[in-house]
Amino acid sequence: MLSTECELLSNQLVAPDHYVMQILAPEIARASLPGQFVHLRIPRTMDPLLRRPLSVMLADKVHGHLRLLVRAAGRGTEIIVALPSGASVDLLGPLGSPFPMPDEIDGGSDKDVLLVAGGVGVAPLVCLADAMRSLDDTPYIRSMFGASTEDMLVCWTELAARSDEFSVATEDGSAGEEGLITEVLAGQLERGHARVVYGCGPAAMMAEVARMSAEAGVPCYCSFEQRMGCGVGACLSCAIGAAGGGYLRVCKDGPVFNAEQVDWEAIRDE
């Protein structure tokens, strides 16, 4: 874990309200694992006060670059996406527990890996697919990406390029299947050839992904969001309900959790 001031190399609008930010952060890039995040702030300002958690979409360990996909979702991210290239950003990271790699999961090594992305949830899954591509024993990767409209399939080429098969669903039918991405997942799970499902997206999507995976008897890992203070496990701000009662820290115990660890009811009610 490191706290450093880094140079923003480029900041590009890739879809309405969505930006890809490339940052020079060699130590963090080298250390980061898929599913981990950085806690970002603009140096020397108290407004916004707190850092903003953002997943690493790609870590180029050779050049020391980090790529983040940022959606302008509120006041803080609006200020962040407006930064010009050459600006300084202060990063704390890499933080959190990464996705377990398929070989760490008991699910049948000849089977496929399924990735299910919703909106900006694509970011950590691109990172995961990228890491799986460089394994000695690269699994067969089937990726699915859902969004409201074609416009919102942000960075889909990044995921498609790292997948063996790639499908899309949009709610308005402007690209791929018309409907929810979980309908595409249902078809994939029916084939009975999945060893693990990885998901990241809106809570309602992940809840459905988790439910379907459990029904199919396939292990499922999802990456969660919660409001954060410290980002390092100290303040207990980022609690989400745990399956057995009590709470888990998204910043330290997560953001990636086995779907069986979390209390989906509580997450839906929040």
Binding site: P48, G76, R227, L236, I240, G241, G246
Partner: peptide, 23 residues
């Protein structure tokens, strides 16, 4: 103590509110 139900913090102007609940 398990602490309070989330969300447990909110950013406010030049500050933040917390209700961790002594977890």
């Amino acid at each position: 103590r398990v602490g309070n139900r989330p969300p447990r913090i909110v950013e406010t102007a030049a500050g933040m509110l917390n209700a961790i609940g002594l977890q």
